[in-house]
Design a protein around this nucleic acid. Structure first.
Length: 200
DNA sequence: GTTCTAGAAC
DNA sequence: GTTCTAGAAC
């Protein structure tokens, strides 16, 4: 074994941030779109990648090639694109598993820049799913279904997100997304949710 | 978004 | 003593 096995070196190693070369971490999806290891499907309007830290057995991100910063930048001009993203996402979900259920949608306040639609199976059986924020971001109103986002734009020509409410949602108590049973810790919740996964 | 870890919670 | 969460990261 080499040196420094027991303690991590300080940030002096690469002169500052861990992502200095590739830019700020929040811009990471841009690079992922060009990573052949992650891309599963693409066409002239979008790219679909595997989430680098999947929060379920199947977790994809559908991203427009056109750079759109966030949900607030969306309006009726994007309706065709958004419908296409949902359509391609539904196809991929159907192709991926006949038994698992999926949801397609957007986080109210995503951490990563560049609009991305999650396509995620509802088992949430993943070692990458660790925190209350992870859980609540996929199982509460924080998760905006694609069809609802599209409908909002059809009706109001915009997506309305209350950022103050959204932040509070992430702090809510842990509840099973299937039976609403409450749990005090993530390990307890994770142990429970597997009972809802249908055997294949 | 993740990693790391102090100290709260048990 | 161990598990678990939550905040800093320049």
């Amino acid at each position: 074994m080499a040196s420094n096995t027991s303690k991590r070196k300080s940030s002096a190693v690469n002169g500052g941030g861990p992502l200095k070369k590739s830019g700020h971490w929040s811009q990471g999806l841009k690079a992922s779109m060009d990573d052949p290891e992650l891309v599963v499907e693409e066409d002239d309007r979008l790219v679909i990648i595997k989430d680098k830290y999947p929060k379920a057995r199947h977790h994809f991100l559908v991203m427009p090639r056109e750079s759109i910063a966030n949900l607030k930048a969306l309006d009726s001009r994007h309706l065709d694109l958004l419908r296409h993203m949902q359509s391609r996402g539904e196809e991929l979900a159907a192709k991926t598993s006949k038994t698992l259920q999926f949801r397609l949608g957007y986080h109210a306040i995503p951490s990563m820049s560049h609009v991305h639609m999650h396509v995620i199976s509802q088992d949430f059986d993943s070692v990458c799913l660790k925190t209350k924020k992870h859980w609540n971001s996929f199982t509460t109103e924080y998760f905006l279904d694609s069809e609802d986002v599209i409908q909002m734009i059809e009706n109001f020509d915009a997506v309305e997100v209350n950022s103050s409410d959204s932040e509070k949602i992430l702090k809510k108590d842990l509840r099973c997304h299937k039976c609403s049973k409450e749990f005090s810790t993530m390990p307890a919740l994770k142990k429970h949710i597997v009972v809802h996964i249908a055997n294949e």
